[in-house]
Amino acid sequence: MNIFLYDNTFEGLLTVVFESFKLKILPDAIVYKNKYQPSLLDISFEIITDVLKAERVWNGIKAKTSKEACDMVYHTFLSGMDNIGMIIFHYLQLTFAANYNVSVNYREESVLLIKQIQQKVLKEAHRMFMFVRFQKTNNDIYFAPIQPKYDVIPLIGKHFKNRFRDQIWIIYDTERDYGLYYDLKTVEEIKLEQHNINKSSGKIDASLLEEKEECYQVLWKSYFDAINIKERKNLKVQMQFMPKRFWNYLPEKNNG
């Protein structure tokens, strides 16, 4: 088995594609090097991420297909699925072998698969637009912890910047331990040394909150209850649109 090892970044994966094509060696698996468990039957290639090589592959995809198709590959990568390296590799093999733009030919299994994964990732990003809840801290920062299924942080900055231009905010992925920080000018990625967030409830330590913050959470929860029509109770649909895994971080749902 030919195993290509990489650093689990998107540029890393594109470098893998570059090297594999250049060496004319096809990978049987593409694995994050920190997770790799060697076996006697394997031949492993450790690929060093090279931004220039990655860029050449990226431009190649763009030339062969379209900007949208490039996005599709990147979004799919953000799913972080175990075998995502090979899924993308197969798709790119096809992309470069074809003499036309394969990215909308859903008769091809690998195209349809990539498209479907992309849709899942974009859906998760959209769910952040829905379910992010800011808590205002006593130093006037609106802080929202999140726990998305996929790594959607790179996809959501623009939306929140456009919307909340005049307030300082942080959106923090407590699972992947990094987030976005907006300082009224630009959005940057940050990693906090320490934070006082309860990871299971998404709550910020009460001593750090602005005095009215809890009132607004109570008001919101009470609005949430008042607007419900009991005669139409339909928990299945509620759950379908707002899966339980988000509830911990929603003030309307985690306050008992």
């Binding site: 637009f129 829905m130 379910f131 419900n228 029509i229 109770k233 928990l235 299945k236 509620q238 649109f241």
Partner: peptide, 10 residues
């Protein structure tokens, strides 16, 4: 954008 869903599924 929907921001939440009530128990009646709306």
């Amino acid at each position: 954008i929907c921001h939440s869903f009530t128990e009646d599924g709306r």
